[in-house]
Simulated assay, not measured.
Amino acid sequence: MNKSWLSVLIPVYNVRPFLAECLASVLQDGIEGVEVLMLEDCSTDGSDRLAAELAARHAPQVQLLRHAQNGGLSAARNTLLDAAQGDYVWFLDSDDLLLPGSVRDLQACLERFQAPDLVLCDFRTVRERFQLKHRLRGELHFHTFAGPPRTRLSDRAALLRGAFDRGHLHSWSKIARRELWEGLRFPVGRYFEDMATTPALLLRARSYVYMDSVWVGYRQRAGSILASNTVRKVDDMMAALAPVPALLAAQLPSLGAETDFAAGYYAAKTFVTACRFEGRRGDPARLAQHLQSFEAMSPLAPAAVVAGCRARGWWWRALRVGYWLGRATAASKAS
């Protein structure tokens, strides 16, 4: 492999309590040829000073970039992508961790499977207090792909289907050849940037391997972006999937019914999340807006998604989607 076979890209913003542990988790395997780029996005909690200290301590392997003004997660990731030199890129949020052996296992995967374009991995949650209920929920191992593991594959329809089935579109569980990101960047100023980019990234992969191993520790904390929803976050979530139907139709005209349904049901789950938020806010008028977004972001008509749930014996899911579909339709007629 080349001198820099992997770039680990870490945006940094107000994560001082977690940053040193995050970086240590990347460096712990001591693998050569791994560059680590941190982007300091104008933190206000001292993360900037700590990032500078860590970069100086681990130079030249660790490099620190800076934004002149805060640009948000998407802008930070885009700057990191522009600076990356590795054959592969792996995003890691600065409050998360790589599990021991993850980089070594990735290196072995690339060698064993003749350097596929994309590697997908699993993750677990990291909590200050990990209780029995969290273990029972399966938080020690979340699977990100529904498909055969540890096999080099090339069926992109199956790749999309497997990713949508599991519903984990985050970038940090997808290690991709850097060339797959050429011309593809995160939408600046918007939340749920992973949902907006991952489908396009998957469609670019000519080969992929799913490693059913936990490589990432995803930290649950109150201050994270996904800890609570707001109107803006919900709107960004609904907008993120809007390009998906046209993207799928343009690049893979014959995805197949199962892949269309997987994407449609993922859109339906997103729709239900948005509607439940509006239900708690007591703003039924916005349900009509979300119905329009659902129709735009699903390869299947909403009624067809409900019918597909019933055909699979998913009665509770069909009821849940159908309930909010009915309320949103009524709100649309009343507006």
Rank of each mutant, 00 (worst) to 15 (best):
L132T: 11
D117Q: 07
R49H: 04
G86W: 00
L92A: 09
P100H: 04
E40S: 05
A76W: 05
L81W: 01
G72K: 06
L39M: 08
V103F: 08
A83H: 00
C42R: 11
D122E: 06
D48K: 00
T79L: 14
G46T: 02
L54K: 05
T79E: 14
V119E: 00
R57I: 12
R57S: 15
G71S: 04
D122N: 11
L140D: 10
R137A: 14
D48S: 09
H143C: 14
R49Q: 09
A115H: 15
D41Y: 07
L37P: 02
P60A: 15
A59C: 15
L81I: 01
Q114P: 09
A51S: 06
A68Y: 14
H143P: 10
M38L: 07
P100N: 02
Y88P: 11
C42I: 05
T79Y: 13
D41A: 09
H67Y: 11
H141F: 02
R49G: 04
A108R: 13
A115W: 14
N78G: 04
E139M: 10
D96E: 11
A52R: 03
L80Q: 03
Q131T: 10
L136K: 00
Q131C: 13
A55W: 01
D82L: 09
L99C: 15
F130W: 08
L81N: 00
A108P: 03
R66L: 02
A115Y: 15
E111Q: 15
D45H: 05
A56F: 10
G72L: 08
R112E: 10
D41I: 03
P116W: 01
L136W: 04
F130C: 06
A68C: 15
N70K: 13
F145S: 03
M38W: 00
Y88S: 13
W90N: 04
H58P: 08
T144K: 07
T144F: 12
N78D: 05
Q61R: 14
R104K: 12
L99H: 15
R57W: 12
R104M: 12
D45M: 05
L97R: 15
D122P: 03
N78K: 02
V36L: 06
